[in-house]
């Protein structure tokens, strides 16, 4: 067991957890933040993407113990005072989601893209989303949503 102190969605969390706890399990099973999803076991689908110290990572491929002292943002931490983040708004406006399962990871990944590139081209968006698999949308409206968000952020 290891004690970790982290800041999650602006709140300090201090917990004693087994050494082998994955960040995704820590979020879902210990903190009940079930917005972060698990869609595969080979680190490819990207449904579990969260931000650690402002950068997107796959929470299924990181040990929580290893992130002691980090600032973590999950999909639950994006909306402020009941108002959704511009990326969330854009996904809604452009119908960038259907079943919603890949959506949290997709949104977190897309926000990281706009941190790196303010006005990405279609190709840059599609390339960036290599680590996020969606089976519903054919990606077209996701690309549209990212562009819409870029114009608003």
């Amino acid at each position: 067991m290891k004690k970790i102190d982290v800041e999650i969605n602006g709140k300090r969390i201090s917990k004693e957890i087994p050494d082998h706890t994955l960040l995704s399990d820590f979020l879902r099973n210990i903190l009940n933040l079930t917005g972060t999803h698990i869609g595969c076991d080979t680190s490819q689908c990207g449904a579990c993407v969260v931000h650690v110290n402002g950068r997107s990572i796959k929470s299924c491929t990181a040990f929580a113990t290893d992130l002691n002292g980090s600032k973590i943002t999950t999909i639950e931490g994006l909306a402020k005072n009941g108002k959704m983040h511009p990326m969330q708004e854009a996904f809604k406006k452009m119908h960038g989601l259907q079943c919603g399962f890949c959506t949290p990871g997709m949104v977190m990944s897309a926000i990281d893209l706009l941190k790196n590139k303010k006005n990405p081209s279609d190709k840059e968006i599609r390339d960036w989303l290599e680590g996020n698999i969606c089976r519903c949308t054919g990606y077209q409206n996701i690309v549209a949503a990212v562009k819409e968000a870029a114009s608003k952020m």
Partner: peptide, 21 residues
Amino acid sequence: VERKEDKRFLTGKGRYTSDIN
């Protein structure tokens, strides 16, 4: 019409079977 279901999916408040304990 924008989707009524979207807000819960976009804010991590969807409730899928594996979210249930």
